[in-house]
């Protein structure tokens, strides 16, 4: 059963409209004329159901949580937190995955052959960079290392010993890093890493990016392994293009389609992770508004259905819209 094109378009339009609505709310959160700030506690109106216009003025349109905080403000600022964490984390992790995955997929284990001399040179340059970056600055060591690098670089074309080519096991390196990260369930890994960090938006972002890049990396690697044997790549090589421009101009635009469609999905997954972590009370500082934290307050007031329903519906709508954008519909062929 194929869905007609018009329905698909209408669904996509709806999804984009919803997402831009959430995005606008998140962007303008600080300037919207909200009656209450998200952290303000109105102790006279605790756990109030939505649309109780008689009770308080200004009204709590969407009700309050057990601490008397306005739900409307918390939902809007929660949207801001969710997007502020998930979108940059998705960008970072996809970028990182794209880099490492194309490195592994395009060159494989044998194709990146570098002269021994350049190996040594890059090794000592890296060491020098690491030492100065880590703050262990010492002028003698730095001068020695950079001098060594320079000498090796100049000597490599002339000495036969240094010209000997050695293959760089790009694929094996990247894939073992992927295997290492994926050997723990992601939630447990993120939980542990977020718990040992100080709670802040930036740290959470780092933790999410460094645990999430494996998915895009695997995707791009698999696609590149398929694409790099196609005749047009061979033609590009035969035309004399360098490895790098073949990869960048010809192979990647074709191979990155999977990653591009998966991008909204990774945003959705990261929003899910963020809300889950906030629900558990880990990762974000306690005063940051978040959908997950809001839902956690239902434990204090089991009768307050709106504490689950409102953030839950927002979450459901956002996730469905993101999936719709990615183009993964239930496959009812």
């Amino acid at each position: 059963m194929n869905t007609p094109l018009r329905t698909t378009n209408r669904r996509r339009l709806l999804a984009s409209a919803w997402l831009s609505f959430v995005l606008l709310l998140a962007l303008l959160a600080a300037w919207l004329p909200l009656p209450y700030a998200p952290a303000t506690t109105d102790l006279a109106h605790v756990a109030e159901p939505p649309l109780q216009t008689a009770a308080a003025y200004p009204h709590h349109w969407l009700g309050t949580d057990p601490f008397g905080r306005d739900l409307l403000a918390n939902l809007i600022f929660g949207a801001r937190t969710a997007l502020l964490v998930s979108v940059p984390a998705a960008l970072f992790s996809t970028g990182l995955g794209l880099m490492l995955g194309s490195f592994a997929g395009f060159w494989g284990d044998t194709n990146l052959r570098v002269a021994l001399g350049y190996w040594l040179a890059s090794g000592s340059a890296l060491l020098a960079a690491f030492l100065s970056f880590a703050g262990f600055w010492s002028t003698t060591a730095f001068l020695l290392l950079s001098g060594f690098t320079l000498v090796i670089v100049l000597a490599t074309p002339r000495l036969r010993l240094l010209r000997h080519l050695a293959a760089f096991p790009a694929d094996r390196l990247v894939m073992s890093a992927v295997a290492l990260l994926e050997s723990i369930p992601r939630l447990v890994l993120v939980l542990v890493m977020a718990a040992v960090q100080e709670a802040s938006v930036f740290n959470l972002l780092l933790v999410l990016s460094f645990t999430y890049w494996t998915g895009p990396a695997r995707l791009i690697r698999a696609d590149l392994q398929r694409v790099k044997h196609l005749p047009y790549i061979e033609a590009a090589r035969a035309a004399g293009l360098s490895d790098f421009s073949v990869l960048l101009r010809h192979a990647l635009p074709n191979a990155s389609r999977g990653v591009r469609t998966a991008f909204p999905l990774s945003i959705a997954a990261l929003i899910g992770l963020e809300t889950t972590l906030s629900f558990l009370g880990i990762g974000l500082p306690a005063e940051t508004a978040s959908w997950g934290r809001l839902m956690a307050t239902v434990r204090l007031e089991p009768a307050a259905w709106w504490l689950i329903a409102e953030p839950g519906l927002l979450l459901l709508g956002t996730m469905l819209a993101l999936r719709q954008l990615a183009g993964t519909r239930p496959t009812t062929v």
Partner: peptide
């Protein structure tokens, strides 16, 4: 199942 899949476990 598709719509169920979008929700995180805790929800």
């Amino acid at each position: 199942l598709y719509s169920l899949d979008t929700l995180p476990l805790f929800v």
